[in-house]
Write a protein that binds this DNA or RNA. Sequence first.
DNA 1: TAAATTTACTTGCAAATTGCAAGTGCAAAT
DNA 2: ATTTGCACTTGCAATTTGCAAGTAAATTTA
Lengths: 146, 146
Amino acid sequence: METNKKRSDCPLSNSLDIFGDKWSLLIIRDLMFFKKCTYKDFLNSAEGIATNILASRLKGLEENGIIEKSAHPDSKAKILYRLTPKGIDLLPIIMEIYIWSDKYFTMPADIKETIKEAKKDKDKFVRQVMKELKIKMMEKNTATDN
Amino acid sequence: METNKKRSDCPLSNSLDIFGDKWSLLIIRDLMFFKKCTYKDFLNSAEGIATNILASRLKGLEENGIIEKSAHPDSKAKILYRLTPKGIDLLPIIMEIYIWSDKYFTMPADIKETIKEAKKDKDKFVRQVMKELKIKMMEKNTATDN
DNA sequence: TAAATTTACTTGCAAATTGCAAGTGCAAAT
DNA sequence: ATTTGCACTTGCAATTTGCAAGTAAATTTA
């Protein structure tokens, strides 16, 4: 289904081939900010992704090295999804989208407050969150990959 | 065609409803970096957008206040598309995508060099380019909107 | 321990979107 | 006056999406 054909040599175009759709960055958001890490977690997000679309997006993100599967510590029936370092590195992009949104949309007060904090020292905020993510994605499960 | 139904209150989701597809940010890239500003210019980009898709994306971006049409100074047959301030404000997002790409893709040497320059002082680079864009989008045509 | 439930999907199918080719209407050039 | 250029629109086939239902293995409950 997913071909690896590049539309052009433009890195922006190549990036959009990976996450340029309505759903991929939302999955990444869930992993980054909302402690969501299973198929069911993602399904339960407010936007209401369809099961087949979720499966296809998880596959695509995994194929592109943005996320990876691992064994869930609680149960063999569960699969734990984690961001790779490559996936964690998407944080600055997502942060800039939030900051842009903050300027042009109304939004829940708690999110607005977080963005306000982040803007005070963007680089520091991003470094801090990335550090936490790296730790979290490690400690979730050091066990064997699926 | 385009409904204004929000999938959720999440600003990231709302943003993706506007530019979360394979084409919109490429049009914005063309306006920002490649002096492209007409329908035909966009059609000629390397990725090869279809005519109907281009028309629908231009419509969507205009409806969402990212771009605007104006009279082309050279000819009544041409339409000049410009970024609005809201559109220009997407630059930091696009820059971060380029920077991410730089870490994980190979790409044309000239683009790589520009990104290298940009990374030396990200904020300064973004400010400078945004300033230039604001001037450029003004001077293109101060005349009446379509 | 058998039955019900949970988890992570897959499948079928209708509806929507995309992509390609071929127009269309107006402006400008020849 | 005719051809060319520009910005689209239209028709249609192919692909993708979204919804509902089903599946298989793991776990929980009775």
